[in-house]
């Protein structure tokens, strides 16, 4: 390596520091002035009192919309979305793996499709699907179902690229056709990782599903945005509590299962 003089190193350091400072100055200069409304304090204390005195009556209401139904909807959206994604990602995962796909074009185009899908945040996809199929849980399911293909496909294809193909040769030698060879030599090696990634994506999708209702794609987000807009802080509190409990519970269960898989 080339040896640099001391002055060179110092100059370089000064340039870096100056550049970082400039970026910060530019960013803060763009901020609007921090300005507290007169009512800000009041609202903050109302929110907190609502959070600590949640509307317990909303948890279960035999007659109509309640927390449990909202949470269940959210769970169903996440579950269905993940299921759809887990099926759709399978062909892409293998077509994007260098060691399985026959041609470079196939690998390249599959990888491109997967990256293209990953570009869109779930919320943008949900907005698109609301336009396409109308507001409601179905739009949410489609958004998560398509959106997760990008990440799952990438992770699974990477794990497929890491498998040992020697068993494939053995299965071919026993007289297995391509399907049998695939089922016996490839699938057992990929399956644990596949389930682990799908479960992980389910955790991510569950969080995403709680927010989808805010834009009208079904689930617990819808009552949350209504409660917020009418300043029903007690209801906001109980909904947030419900989300926290559900997400924590599912994370814990799914984490346990994943730990046993790999």
């Amino acid at each position: 390596m080339k040896q640099h003089g001391k002055t060179f190193i110092y100059t370089r350091r000064i340039i870096v520091v100056a550049a970082v400072l400039l970026v910060y100055i530019w960013a803060f200069a763009g901020l609007p002035l921090l300005e507290l409304k007169e009512t800000s304090g009041e609202i903050v204390s109302a929110i907190f009192s609502g959070l600590f005195q949640p509307d317990w009556g909303y948890v279960y209401d035999p007659g109509g919309e309640d927390l449990l139904r909202g949470l269940l909807d959210t769970l169903a959206i996440a579950l269905l979305g993940t299921f759809i994604a887990s099926v759709l990602c399978i062909p892409f995962s293998f077509m994007a793996s260098k060691n399985i796909a026959k041609t470079k074009t196939m690998v390249g185009s599959s990888k491109f499709v997967l990256s293209f899908i990953r570009v869109f945040p779930d919320i943008v996809l949900a907005l698109l699907f609301i336009k396409a199929v109308g507001p409601g849980a179905f739009a949410g399911v489609l958004a998560l179902g398509i959106g997760a293909v990008g990440m799952l496909g990438k992770l699974i294809s990477e794990s497929v690229e890491g498998i040992d193909l020697s068993a494939r040769e053995a299965l071919i030698a026993t007289g297995g056709n391509p399907v049998k060879t695939f089922m016996f030599a490839i699938v057992p090696q990929v399956l644990p990782n596949f389930f682990s990634f799908v479960l992980y994506r389910f955790e991510v999708n569950l969080r995403a599903a709680t927010i989808l209702g805010v834009i009208g794609a079904g689930g617990i987000g819808t009552p949350l945005i209504f409660a917020l807009s009418v300043r029903d802080w007690g209801r906001v509190g109980i909904i947030l509590l419900g989300i926290i409990v559900m997400v924590t519970l599912i994370d814990a269960i799914s984490g346990k299962i994943r730990a046993r898989l790999v």
Binding site: S166, A167, A170, I172, A173, G176, N177, Q189, P192
Partner: peptide, 19 residues
């Protein structure tokens, strides 16, 4: 496939599905 079925093969690196 049927002819291959009558020929067993053993490899240097065993070629088992390790998992």
């Amino acid at each position: 496939y049927r002819i291959r079925r009558d020929i067993g093969m053993i490899f240097q690196n065993f070629n088992l599905v390790r998992r």
